[in-house]
Amino acid sequence: MVKLIHTLADHGDDVSCCAFSSTLLATCSLDKTIRLYSLSDFAELPHSPLKFHTYAVHCCSFSPSGHVLASCSTDGTTVLWSAHSGHTLTVLEQPGGSPVRVCCFSPDSTYLASGAADGSVVLWNAHSYKLYRCGSVKDSSLVACAFSPDGGLLVTGSSGGDLTVWDDRMRCLHSEKAHDLGITCCSFSSQPLSGGEHGLQLYRLASCGQDCEIKLWVVSFTRVLGFELKYRSTLSGHCAPVLACAFSHDGQMLASGLWFFKTGLLCVALAVLELICRPGWP
């Protein structure tokens, strides 16, 4: 059973993304701001809202430690903030100045990935704030990204519907049409799958899109045998575009969301889908 815990209505425009750390909730909005709340009582922090961006903020993401918050915007920048003081740590400018749609940290906090409307994806060193590697996809905006649990792979999703897999040197390993009307989100389970042999690493990946579907994949990778992306199944329970998906910590549940935006109000409808083991599913 799900019940409403709290409603936050502080933003002055549509809420575009939210992110959790162990102690904080961050929300960002088309009103150009990021807001921070304590999870203990949902009180807004004294240094919130965070203001720097000159256009809409599309995505926000905490580092695994929760100490750093990244935000990205139509203004072509990704900003790193101290989550506890609100101070700006650095401003990363996307090459070409294209609007930045999505950002995420690697599991060890070494890298930050940022994906933009021109199809560019940049891997930044999150400690030196220097550009590490770049890649790009053709004829689409990048709207989703996720690192594998070991940080060795980065998956990006595009408005054209392609899933693209990159290694840790931003070499394109694979690209595949996943959703006909465009991808909206992709997410790795943090728990590796059993059954890997000879150093084979197996991970479960979910993608969702404007086609109202969620697709489940298995990603396998080894330095010797290379990379493989295997389609496993499609979940078709939604009657509208699926804009968000995320695995539970133990990898046994997948939450998918349809977002209903009201001005300044954050609300989300979630469908929780239990992943039942069956033949052909690792």
Rank of each mutant, 00 (worst) to 15 (best):
V2M: 11
K3N: 14
L8G: 04
G12I: 00
D14H: 07
V15E: 03
V15Q: 05
L25Q: 09
L25D: 09
A26Y: 10
T27L: 12
S29R: 01
L30F: 14
D31C: 08
K32L: 07
I34E: 10
L39F: 13
D41G: 10
H47V: 05
P49R: 01
F52N: 06
F52H: 13
T54E: 15
A56I: 00
H58K: 15
H58E: 10
C59D: 14
V68S: 10
A70S: 15
S71A: 14
L80I: 06
G86S: 11
H87C: 11
H87R: 12
H87L: 13
V91R: 13
P99V: 03
R101C: 14
R101H: 09
C103M: 05
C104N: 10
S106Y: 08
P107Y: 02
Y111L: 08
A116V: 02
A117T: 10
A126G: 04
H127L: 09
K130A: 15
C134P: 00
G135D: 03
S136G: 07
S136E: 13
D139Q: 07
S141Y: 00
C145W: 02
S148K: 07
S148W: 06
P149G: 11
G151R: 07
V155G: 03
V165K: 01
V165G: 02
W166M: 04
R169L: 12
C172Y: 00
S175R: 14
H179F: 08
L181T: 04
T184A: 09
C185L: 00
F188S: 03
Q191W: 00
G195S: 06
E197R: 14
H198Y: 11
G199E: 04
R204C: 13
L205P: 05
A206E: 03
S207Y: 05
I214F: 01
W217N: 01
V219Q: 03
V219N: 00
V219F: 01
F221R: 05
L229A: 07
R232M: 11
L243N: 05
S248A: 08
D250K: 08
M253T: 08
M253D: 04
L254E: 06
A255S: 13
A255Q: 00
S256W: 01
F261E: 04
G264Y: 06
G264T: 09
C267R: 09
L270I: 12
L270N: 07
A271V: 13
A271T: 15
V272H: 12
V272R: 09
I276A: 11
R278T: 13
P279D: 05
